[in-house]
Amino acid sequence: MAISEAEVKKVARLARLAVPDDRLEAYTQNLSNILNLVDQLSAVDTTGVEPMAHPLDMMQRLREDVVTETSHREKYQSVAPEVEDGLYLVPKVLE
């Protein structure tokens, strides 16, 4: 199935990727090719087949409700692009 340039734009927006106009065509072509490859799946009869999200049929292990962490704010924020007063900064969020 081919994907249109408009759809690629929409998907890029959802994924927060600023595709410049001059790259849109190439992306559209590549993504269409990939979707063509994937389209083989539509012909497979999967009636009654349970979807498989994990390779192993295991159940989840739970952890006890214990506080194990202490603050390492300075260390963790040393890799942050912009912090002030212990806060991560971003352009103004409007609500």
């Binding site: 979707l35 994937v38 539509s42």
Partner: peptide, 24 residues
């Protein structure tokens, strides 16, 4: 982008769910 597309409204069943079934 492919992954975002495959999970997005209207395509989830045809792509993601189908792929999970064939995975089984």
């Amino acid at each position: 982008m492919i992954g975002t597309y495959a999970l997005s409204a209207g395509y989830y069943d045809a792509y993601y769910l189908k792929a999970q079934q064939v995975r089984r």
